[in-house]
């Protein structure tokens, strides 16, 4: 992977934050529907932070002519937008601690992406901006790790009629 122009890099940064916000909101909606408001609030907060970063990336892109990429043309390192917390690892019985673990995976995904651009881009301007984003994402990772260290081990939601009846 090599992202060598500022418009291409910012197109990726904008999509990354957009996708992340949408993903966190969808996870929050799903947990709210299932009555898990405290966990939903945490994901909602993460969606809010993603939107703040989105605004920052859009600000950086002001005046630039960004390429319009198709969904599958983004050069993500994995199968999905890198800051997307792995929604498939969520479930209806998760607690706030579980949610923090997922959010941390999302932030680490974004960090890895920006670090990779920083290391591989052939353009100094792109590498410098990626370095700034690496520093920001590192800060987010540290904050989440701190929250996680302080999060109480509350146990999972107790379901008196669990879905798997046998085994």
């Amino acid at each position: 992977m090599s992202i060598d122009t500022l418009p291409l890099f910012l197109a990726h940064a904008i999509r990354l934050e957009e996708d992340s916000a949408i993903n966190y909101d969808a996870m929050a909606d799903a947990l709210e529907v299932h009555g898990k408001s405290p966990v939903a609030r945490l994901f909602r907060k993460m969606a809010h932070y993603s939107r703040l970063h989105l605004a920052e990336a859009e600000g950086r892109a002001a005046g630039l002519d960004l390429p319009r990429l198709k969904t599958w043309e983004y050069q993500w390192p994995g199968d999905d937008s890198p800051e997307n917390a792995p929604a498939d690892e969520s479930d209806y019985a998760m607690n706030e601690r579980d949610a923090l673990i997922l959010a941390l995976k999302g932030e680490k995904g974004a960090l890895a992406f920006y670090a990779s651009v920083m290391e591989t881009s052939g353009d100094t301007g792109v590498a410098d901006l990626a370095k700034e984003f690496v520093e920001e994402e590192s800060e987010h990772v540290s904050i989440l790790e701190d929250w996680l260290a302080r999060a109480p081990e509350t146990g999972r939601f107790e379901d008196l009629d669990p879905p798997i009846a046998i085994g």
Partner: peptide, 9 residues
């Protein structure tokens, strides 16, 4: 809002 379970594909 979808009523699918959290984590559903």
């Amino acid at each position: 809002t979808p009523v699918w379970c959290p984590g559903c594909g």
